[in-house]
Amino acid sequence: MDAKNTSQVIENLENQVERLDKEVYNLNSKVELLEGLLIKIIENQKISPNLLLDIDCIAVKKDLSGEERAEISFFLLKVQKEYMQEGKVPNLEEFHSGLCNVLGVTQNEKEEYPIEISKQLLQKYDKIGEFPVAKEILSKS
């Protein structure tokens, strides 16, 4: 086996390891989502209609990968950064539109993803105090 073949074999193995790492990350992400939803169901002893608007439930429904789920956090950080640096506060419709874009919601699916999803997400983050602009967005609606 010469150096060129060895190099190609190593590159192929590295690509395979990278692909498997990504797959494991995505599977772990989905398991975490499902665990969270299961805990909510157990705690509530029933499925509340609000659970269907929960961002975790939507991520499971849309079959989002771990990287796609991370995009939700990046979107929130972007909105927060614009608020902190420029004082820019989107209204609820603008926020919801941005969230739908991040979730990959198509025009045909828009009716399945009502604005209550964004309201619930903002209320959740406002309640835990991790997203100060949430209160501002909710007050503009």
Rank of each mutant, 00 (worst) to 15 (best):
residue 3 A to V: 12
residue 4 K to Q: 05
residue 6 T to W: 01
residue 7 S to Y: 03
residue 8 Q to F: 02
residue 8 Q to K: 11
residue 14 E to G: 05
residue 15 N to I: 00
residue 17 V to M: 12
residue 19 R to K: 14
residue 21 D to A: 09
residue 21 D to P: 01
residue 23 E to I: 08
residue 24 V to E: 06
residue 26 N to F: 06
residue 26 N to T: 06
residue 27 L to D: 01
residue 28 N to R: 14
residue 29 S to E: 02
residue 31 V to Y: 10
residue 31 V to F: 09
residue 32 E to S: 15
residue 32 E to N: 15
residue 33 L to N: 08
residue 33 L to G: 01
residue 33 L to C: 10
residue 35 E to P: 01
residue 36 G to R: 07
residue 39 I to T: 08
residue 40 K to F: 01
residue 41 I to N: 00
residue 41 I to T: 09
residue 42 I to N: 10
residue 42 I to A: 12
residue 45 Q to I: 05
residue 46 K to M: 01
residue 46 K to F: 11
residue 48 S to Q: 13
residue 50 N to F: 10
residue 51 L to M: 13
residue 56 D to I: 06
residue 59 A to P: 02
residue 59 A to R: 01
residue 59 A to C: 13
residue 60 V to A: 11
residue 61 K to W: 12
residue 62 K to S: 07
residue 64 L to T: 05
residue 65 S to F: 07
residue 67 E to G: 11
residue 68 E to A: 08
residue 71 E to M: 09
residue 72 I to W: 04
residue 72 I to G: 04
residue 73 S to G: 10
residue 73 S to E: 13
residue 74 F to H: 14
residue 75 F to L: 15
residue 76 L to F: 00
residue 77 L to F: 09
residue 77 L to G: 13
residue 78 K to A: 10
residue 82 E to N: 15
residue 84 M to Y: 11
residue 84 M to C: 05
residue 84 M to K: 15
residue 84 M to P: 00
residue 88 K to C: 02
residue 88 K to M: 11
residue 89 V to D: 05
residue 93 E to S: 14
residue 93 E to Q: 14
residue 94 E to I: 14
residue 96 H to W: 02
residue 97 S to H: 10
residue 98 G to V: 04
residue 98 G to P: 06
residue 101 N to A: 07
residue 102 V to E: 03
residue 102 V to H: 02
residue 103 L to T: 06
residue 105 V to D: 09
residue 105 V to A: 04
residue 106 T to K: 09
residue 107 Q to M: 04
residue 107 Q to W: 10
residue 108 N to H: 12
residue 110 K to M: 09
residue 110 K to W: 04
residue 110 K to Q: 13
residue 112 E to N: 09
residue 114 P to T: 04
residue 114 P to S: 06
residue 118 S to N: 03
residue 119 K to M: 07
residue 120 Q to I: 10
residue 123 Q to Y: 12
residue 124 K to T: 08
residue 124 K to E: 05
residue 126 D to I: 01
residue 126 D to V: 01
residue 127 K to M: 09
residue 127 K to Q: 13
residue 128 I to T: 12
residue 129 G to W: 02
residue 130 E to M: 12
residue 130 E to V: 10
residue 130 E to F: 04
residue 130 E to A: 14
residue 133 V to L: 06
residue 133 V to E: 07
residue 133 V to G: 01
residue 135 K to H: 13
residue 136 E to N: 14
residue 137 I to A: 03
residue 138 L to S: 04
residue 139 S to W: 00
